[in-house]
Design a protein around this nucleic acid. Structure first.
Lengths: 225, 225
DNA sequence: TGTACATCAGTGAACGCGCGTTCACTGATGTAC
DNA sequence: TGTACATCAGTGAACGCGCGTTCACTGATGTAC
């Protein structure tokens, strides 16, 4: 095995161990020494691969965002472009699936911020991948004139959102539907987080079904038909 | 000052210091020693007041839930009982206000769970206070027959929710509106969390207005008029 | 093809630090007679 | 009203622990001539 191959493999093991620790101790207690133990190195050797504890945390965050973003993109791409509701449902389901499969990485990116840690620039782009997918669905719906009969902006909607950010995320979408699209996104994240963090208590007799119905309600809210 | 008074005051100082630390270091890194330093005691003296670090964490969680619940109850009580949309908007606004005023306590209760810490029984009742307020609004709306023209349950709604839990939270509300009520709650929590944790990025030019519009959209979704 | 040198993965000891919790103690506040 | 005793807040030292990071080092892998 060449040096480069070996290096890549070891880096992979370190990230794997980091993810394992996220699960066992949480982001705030992520420990380089424990990571080192996990991959069978002495603690100082990890510094050949990551510059500091915070750098490892950043890597875990970006790979989590990327991983989730890719799951969303694949779910979206598997549907006919014109099947807007199908795409919304597929992406929403994929997001929840990913969260259930990677609960601690979900908590890392959508849970409480890690105190004392400031996310650097490098996390920004991966973070927008999921929302970009959903933004495209709303934009496609607007383009096809399929956002229901009343896409009129509620009073003040235009001034609530930043025009540049809106144009980047949902090009060509008026403020009204854009706001409703954002509300659908917050509803999705809220549902997944509350379910994952155990805040529904005994309420959900059938979590899959409840989520599926919530997805439909949110699609109705946006006006995706 | 009597012993009892003194004790109560010191306990207050300890909780205050605990909250301060939640802000500075986060729940996972809450430290009894630092709390002791904050209130000007030696570390072992704190054990006269709380049995362990986890017990302090539990106290902080229950008081946070109670505090938020009380804010919601007061906002609700300040409106005419029949003003359903006004009540929903007032409670939603109060919840966001409280979260902005107590960001780290919000993160403590609605953010990622603290790893290695299992919330004991004593947190359950305070946790339900906010949702009880919102449940009552939906129940009042259903009772008054004001949930729009189509309160019919979507296919499968009845089996998605636990009947006992539903009856406790929203007595007399059919499964369809109940589900939509829950979706409104998840949307509210999702919006507040995403805003607080910085996930909207540059999107919100006017956060107050965006939230206000989101509240209306969610009220429309439930059918609260 | 062989040799000299550079690169770099991993070692092991050490640094200074903060943590939760226990324990025997002092001294002030409260209570019973 | 005064005295003897119990309660309990707070002290200070100690326990064993894990952490992030630095540093001088060994020895194997790669490269240039």
């Amino acid at each position: 095995m060449s040096r480069a191959e070996h290096r890549e493999q070891q880096m992979g093991l370190i990230l794997e161990a980091g993810r394992r620790q996220l699960a066992e101790r949480g982001a705030a207690a992520l420990s380089l020494r424990e990571v080192a133990r996990d991959v069978g190195m002495v603690s100082s050797a990890v510094y050949r691969y990551v510059g500091s504890r915070d750098e490892l945390l950043t890597l875990l965050i970006t790979t989590a965002f990327d991983d989730l973003g890719e799951a969303a993109e694949q779910a979206d791409a598997a549907r006919r472009r014109s099947d807007l509701r199908g795409r919304w449902r597929a992406v929403g389901t994929a997001v929840r699936r990913w969260a259930l499969d990677h609960p601690h990485e979900w908590a890392l990116v959508y849970g409480s911020p890690v105190p004392g840690y400031a996310a650097p620039e490098s996390t920004v782009v991966p973070a927008t991948r999921v929302t970009a997918v959903l933004g495209t669905i709303v934009a496609d719906a607007a383009l096809a004139g399929r956002l229901g009969d009343d896409p009129a902006a509620p009073k003040g909607a235009t001034r609530a959102l930043d025009p540049a950010a809106l144009a980047a995320l949902m090009p060509g979408v008026p403020a009204g539907p854009a706001l409703r699209g954002m509300t659908a996104w917050t509803g999705l994240v809220g549902h997944v987080s509350l379910e994952l963090f155990g805040h529904f208590g005994p309420m959900l007799a059938n979590p899959e079904r409840a989520f599926s119905l919530a997805l439909d309600e949110l699609a109705d809210l946006v006006g995706i038909t």
